[in-house]
Design a protein around this nucleic acid. Structure first.
Length: 575
RNA sequence: CGGGGCGUGGCGCAGCCUGGUAGCGCACCUGCUUUGGGAGCAGGGAGUCGCAGGUUCAAAUCCUGCCGCCCCGACCA
């Protein structure tokens, strides 16, 4: 493509509403423009990068035996009522009404549609397993879209769904997708990790997230330095500590202490001269509208996802002031487990604690000398806290590392959640009607491109890895008005295009500096610079965007060298 | 939804406090010079100052309401 004819509006100044580097660079490099909050237009350069990722995804999905379909974006509410998600999904689901007053939504995901399709078309085990996928625009009405296309409302996603006759088959399907995802993200050139994850509102039993390592990532994750354990922080398990035998004679007598206006753990510690490890925090949560008290050691934090899973509820939130006073008979700040009017669950951190301090359920009072077996009735002990740097690997006891990441892919085992709700059955070998076992597998396409930029940039702009680069090569004649330079440039351009190399010819009548800056900003991996000095010796220069290395090569060899370099790079990423 | 900030040519911003000719840089157009890391000079085009009310002789500026955007939080595959 000739630069002079391209729709490629690069800008020098960073638009003021961009926060993260990928967003800034996509705007500056003329890839992306915002239409409304969380809704973006892709310009040609951005869309080419998107298509590169899509095609890598497509190739690996096909290779893994999945077949591409294309499902509707607008979906009737009936399907969502069948699965139960019309009510469960909440405000993130963009709902609309047609002229006949029928309810629809714009698909935030496609479990309902695909399950409806498959249940009508598949009757026997002979037609299974199947894995169907699509690459399509989703809409999720995020409360707060941010970071450009990293978290937008409208976004492109590859979503795949597998259907199997039994658990063993579903395990194979899951494994195939897991392997395909590893290949996809390797080809994208990522430094990434697959981590164990919570399955969230999609539901199901088991899942992994694919995280691109980046300091700006929205997710925190942990991984073991010794074994293969890796998990999203919200999923990271903490092993149950050994219970040490207790000698009840060491139990102190309960003592109510007057603690005026002392509410937080810090205030309690200071007032009573104890450490946070000797104090219990009592947090009141509302779980599906039912109050529950969660106990945890004073220096630890509750992991709400773990609590939610432990209680098996759909929603969880910290209780409001009036709920607190209802169950504790006291204002906020003095909640304690003794005599509280709701269920009590406790984190493992309480297992070996004795003679601890708790709230008194009475304004301005705390209680010292509390012990679980004797004073408090606990429904369950469970792993409820957020992992810390001082924790060890739940599998091998090894040292745990923390990192941040961008979730670019997620694989789930869904089990029969949707096939049961929507009655997707098949007739098995033994003549019995059974529910299909499902899995679902997503990749955020736009987010993958953004993550790629997060990991590959420098002060001058984007540094594309070859497989995602919108173009492989840019040819920069230093002065387009010099006939010798422009003729050589045109010649090389034509030859490279013939060989299937994706190339930009910067034929603009601009100064060299402008062209160099733009070439760096848009991050094309290889640049061929054609200048008078080297051309006098029959040479042109090949510059690597990544290393900055410049190599002077004879004009007649440049074509072969470029083809070789491009192929090598693509092959290297394929692994 | 709570807290904070912002809306002025395409982009980045000043002007607002203290009401009175809309301004700067970049980008754009024309011409000349220049041509290996975002050139120089000269000339030029482009703005309902987010929207709607109100106060005033007079509103970008003061007041009220609304809308949009960004950040933090709650929330969330």
């Amino acid at each position: 493509m000739r630069y002079s004819e391209m729709f490629l509006p690069t800008v020098k100044e960073t638009p003021s509403d961009a926060e993260v580097v990928s967003h800034k660079l996509m705007l500056r490099a003329g890839m992306l423009r915002k239409l409304a909050g969380g809704i973006y237009s892709y310009l040609p350069l951005g869309y080419r990068a998107i298509r590169k990722v899509e095609n890598i995804v497509r190739e690996e999905m096909n290779r893994a035996g999945a077949q591409e379909v294309f499902l509707p974006a607008v979906q009737p509410s009936e399907l969502w009522k069948e699965s139960g998600r019309w009510n469960m999904y909440g405000k993130e689901l963009l709902r609309l009404r047609d002229r006949h007053n029928r309810d629809y939504c714009i698909g935030p995901t496609h479990e309902e549609v695909i399950t409806a399709l498959v249940r009508d078309e598949i009757q026997t085990y002979r037609q299974l397993p199947r894995n169907l996928y699509q690459i399509q625009t989703k809409f999720r009405d995020e409360i707060r879209p941010r970071f450009g296309i990293m978290r937008s409302r409208e976004f492109g996603m590859k979503d795949a769904y597998s259907f199997d006759v039994d658990e063993t088959g579903a395990e194979v399907s899951y494994r195939k997708m897991f392997d395909a995802y590893n290949k996809i993200f390797r080809r994208c050139g990522f430094n990434f990790r697959a981590v164990e994850a919570d399955s969230g509102s999609i539901g199901g039993s088991y899942s992994h997230e694919f995280m691109v390592i980046a300091a700006t990532g929205e997710d925190a994750m942990v991984f073991c330095s010794a074994c293969k354990y890796a998990a999203n922080l919200e999923k990271a398990e903490i092993a149950r500590p050994e219970k040490v035998a207790v000698d009840e004679s060491e139990f102190a007598t309960l003592e109510e202490v007057y603690t005026p206006d002392v509410r937080t753990i810090e205030e309690v510690c200071e007032f009573l001269d104890v450490s946070p490890q000797e104090v219990i925090k009592t947090l009141i949560f509302l779980c599906d509208d039912k109050p529950v008290a969660a106990l945890i050691r004073g220096d630890e934090e509750i992991n709400e996802i773990k609590l939610k899973n432990c209680l098996g509820c759909d929603s969880i939130e910290l209780a409001t002031e009036d709920i607190i006073s209802e169950v504790t008979q006291s204002p906020r700040g003095f909640a304690g487990p003794i005599g509280i009017k709701c269920d009590v669950v406790a984190d493992y951190s309480l297992i070996n604690m004795k003679n601890f301090v708790v709230g008194g359920n009475k304004e301005n009072y705390h209680i010292k000398g509390c012990n679980t077996g004797r004073d408090v009735k606990i429904r369950d002990f469970a792993d409820l806290r957020i992992m810390k740097e001082t924790d060890t690997c739940p599998r091998c006891g090894g040292e745990i590392n923390f990192a941040r990441g961008i979730e670019v892919g997620h694989v789930f085992k869904l089990g029969t959640k949707y096939s049961k709700a929507m009655n997707a059955t098949f007739l098995d070998k033994d003549g019995a009607e059974k529910h299909m076992i499902m899995g679902c597998y997503g990749i955020g396409i736009g987010r993958t491109v953004a993550a790629c930029i997060e990991q590959n940039n420098d002060k001058d702009g984007i540094v594309w890895p070859m497989p995602i680069a919108p173009y492989h090569v840019i040819i920069t004649p230093v002065n387009i008005n010099d006939e010798g330079l422009s003729k050589t440039a045109e010649d090389i351009y034509r030859k490279l295009e013939e060989k299937g190399i994706e190339v930009i010819l910067d034929d603009r009548d601009e100064r060299a500096g402008v062209k160099f800056k733009d070439a760096d900003l848009i991050g094309i991996p290889l640049r061929i610079t054609i200048g008078a000095r080297s051309l006098a010796e029959g040479k042109v220069e090949i510059k690597s965007r990544k290393s900055g290395e410049i190599e002077a090569v004879p004009v007649e060899k440049v074509e072969d060298l470029i083809c070789q370099r491009v192929r090598e790079e693509l092959k290297r990423h394929r692994g």
